[in-house]
Design a protein around this nucleic acid. Structure first.
Length: 356
DNA sequence: GTGATTTGACCATC
DNA sequence: GATGGTCAAATCAC
């Protein structure tokens, strides 16, 4: 039993480390204009590594306090710009096996990975701006929902026919606050290949090109429209009221327009070498002049370890965070701007060293 | 002309 | 039967 756990732990750590290593490589390639294929390949491998890691975790535990917290988070209706990602743990494994078949009927559809995101939309002269999340969606239906004031819109990936990408999303205005859009994502994007990672001139300011995503983890990509970025960042904050504090370490960010943003509750960066380094080398880096950043879903390394190996952890203080950064206005890239060397992570990195 | 959106109808599930 | 999700023809926009 113990040896099994040890083996699983090694596999899990290996996948996580591989993901970080690939992210570092990806960051290097992002500075090379002609390396689009390489970066796409690295991106897929990174996502695959974390997919495997989460599969390992889910094979070993039913549900963790982090997932409960995530559920609370996603169910919270907040007037603030709230980005949260919730992947239904019961849906995940089955859905990954036969994603292409899931739209055959509602039964299978239920097994698709699902996560929700609440986004505050900007209302100008009574007209809402379209919600942009970095993917290209095609609306295929709208329905009045019985208990809701506002109709629900149904979208699927624009490239469904050409790539078989089965990602869908449902968009509905919040009951509590009409300025908030409740967005539910179903399925994963598999449309990264052959769709062009760089927006076409026509689409650069109007529509997003599809980006690689073959994972339950949904990245938020930089968009080329500076105006749109400003609109987003001007309302960007993260709801923290109902979050278990150790889930989200925080980073303070100041944008070009002097808006101050707290991305996560401030708890750990001062004490934790990992995040203090991360904050210094990436999040607060002077090399990111644009007033744009995107928050990816975060996950708690310690918490997941707790779940797998039944180890109580007093104050989990490390979490994995990938920050998508629009430091170059013309390319929809995301910037994983930290390295393993910088934070001292190697194969022997003591992920659980603070647990008792 | 082509692709996206709208909207009523249809289907599966509860 | 009520409801949510999807289809597909009609319409719109470029």
């Amino acid at each position: 039993m113990e040896s099994e756990k040890s083996c699983e732990q090694k596999a899990l750590v290996s996948e996580l480390i591989q993901g970080l290593e690939l992210a570092t490589k990806l960051n290097e390639y992002l500075n090379i204009p002609s390396s689009v294929d390489t970066t796409n390949s690295l991106l897929q491998r990174i996502l695959s590594s974390y997919d495997k890691a989460f599969l390992i975790l889910r094979q070993n535990a039913p549900i963790s306090k982090s997932e409960e917290a995530m559920q609370q988070l996603t169910q919270t209706s907040s007037p603030q710009f709230l980005v949260s990602v919730h992947q239904n743990p019961e849906d995940y494994e089955g859905a990954r096996k036969d994603d292409q078949e899931l739209n055959q009927n509602a039964k299978k559809r239920k097994r698709m990975p699902k996560w929700t995101q609440q986004v505050r939309v900007k209302i100008q002269d009574g007209v809402e701006e379209p919600h942009h999340d970095g993917y290209s969606w095609r609306k295929y239906g709208q329905k009045n929902i019985l208990s809701a004031k506002h109709p629900r819109s149904y979208y699927r990936c624009t490239f469904r026919k050409t790539t078989g990408c089965n990602a869908k999303k449902q968009v509905q205005r919040s009951e509590e606050d009409p300025n908030v859009l409740d967005i539910s994502y179903h399925g994963s994007h598999i449309c990264s290949k052959g769709n062009g990672a760089v927006p076409s001139p026509k689409s650069a300011d109007m529509e997003e090109e599809p980006q690689g995503c073959d994972s339950n983890v949904q990245f938020h990509y930089a968009q080329s429209s500076q105006e749109r970025l400003t609109d987003y960042t001007s309302t960007l904050s993260v709801e923290t009221d109902n979050i278990t504090p150790h889930l989200f370490p925080s980073f303070e960010c100041m944008t070009q327009d002097n808006h101050h943003h707290t991305l996560f509750p401030s708890l750990v960066q001062e004490n934790d070498p990992f995040f203090s380094t991360l904050a210094q080398t990436s999040l607060l880096s002077p090399n990111t002049p644009e007033s744009s950043y995107f928050v990816s879903p975060s996950f708690t390394v310690h918490d997941e370890f707790d779940r797998v190996f039944d180890k109580p952890c007093a104050d989990s203080d490390a979490a994995g965070i990938v920050l998508a950064d629009a430091s170059t206005a013309n390319s929809p890239i995301f910037d994983v701007n930290f390295s393993l060397d910088a934070v001292g992570i190697g194969e022997n990195f003591p992920f659980h060293s603070k647990c008792t």
